[in-house]
């Protein structure tokens, strides 16, 4: 279970990345955030952002047309 969940369902670019960045600021290194998005762009944007920021994408899956990402703060 992630430490924080970001519900970005229904939101479009750039909001899933923005919301995730705001949520991860509240975490300590090693803690995780789960992002749920419906924006197809998030499929490439969240992993790219996480990688560039030094965070780790621990998990990614699709469920009912929603995209889930678990990101561990680096």
């Amino acid at each position: 279970m992630a430490d924080v969940t970001v519900d970005a369902r229904g939101l479009q670019c750039p909001m899933p990345v923005i919301k995730t960045s705001q949520a991860i600021k509240t975490l300590a290194a090693g803690q995780t955030v789960e992002v749920i998005a419906s924006d197809r762009g998030a499929l490439s944007d969240i992993p790219a952002w996480a990688g560039d920021m030094g965070h780790t994408l621990k998990e990614q899956f699709e469920e009912n047309d929603e995209f889930h990402f678990v990101v561990e703060k680096g």
Binding site: C13, P14, V17, I18, T20, S21, Q22, W49, D52, M53
Partner: peptide, 11 residues
């Protein structure tokens, strides 16, 4: 504005 906010999200 999209790129500016995303840049900020990139720290």
């Amino acid at each position: 504005m999209i790129l500016a906010t995303t840049g900020a999200a990139y720290g």
